[in-house]
Amino acid sequence: MNIFRLTGDLSHLAAIIILLLKIWKTRSCAGISGKSQILFALVFTTRYLDLLTSFISLYNTTMKVIYIGCAYATVYLIYMKFKATYDGNHDSFRMEFLVVPVGGLACLVNHDFSFLEILWTFSIYLESVAILPQLFMISKTGEAETITTHYLFFLGLYRALYLFNWIWRFYFEGFFDMIAIVAGMVQTILYCDFFYLYVTKGQGISL
């Protein structure tokens, strides 16, 4: 554990809580891509299956359970409780265009051809692109509410901080994981355009 890893995790947690609270408080999921949220739920589910097979630390287990729980709660709010406010017409990105190629890649490029390892690799690859339906939706409607941009900022910041974590771990622990690093770089790059808009406009974004 180092400062980049910890702040990265907290940034990730902040993003998830911000989104959940926004939907809950406004009783609306307008402007939120349900498809991105389904993909994140899939990411956490396939990555944290090791909850059932190995215990690493209380911190690790707690965070995993919170992430998974919040992901499913968010999907529930969007598709069940506040379904009437869900803007499905603008959430038209095809999930299979991400899930199928990512699944194929996970089978081809992984550390070990075993069930759990392939699912873990799948989750890493999928996470790197899971935000695309949300970004696509914003580009389609041409706007995003302020709170939605805060959500995206923390979500993007989290993986950027993980990049520093991996640099730290490489220098001080000699540890590196090429799959996580490359996917993390792709993920962070996808947010760069958004970061620019967030910093220069600071408020809700309208393109």
Partner: peptide, 10 residues
């Protein structure tokens, strides 16, 4: 991470 490594990162 090697396959048998515990996956500490989230």
């Amino acid at each position: 991470a090697e396959a048998d490594d515990d996956k500490d990162e989230l």
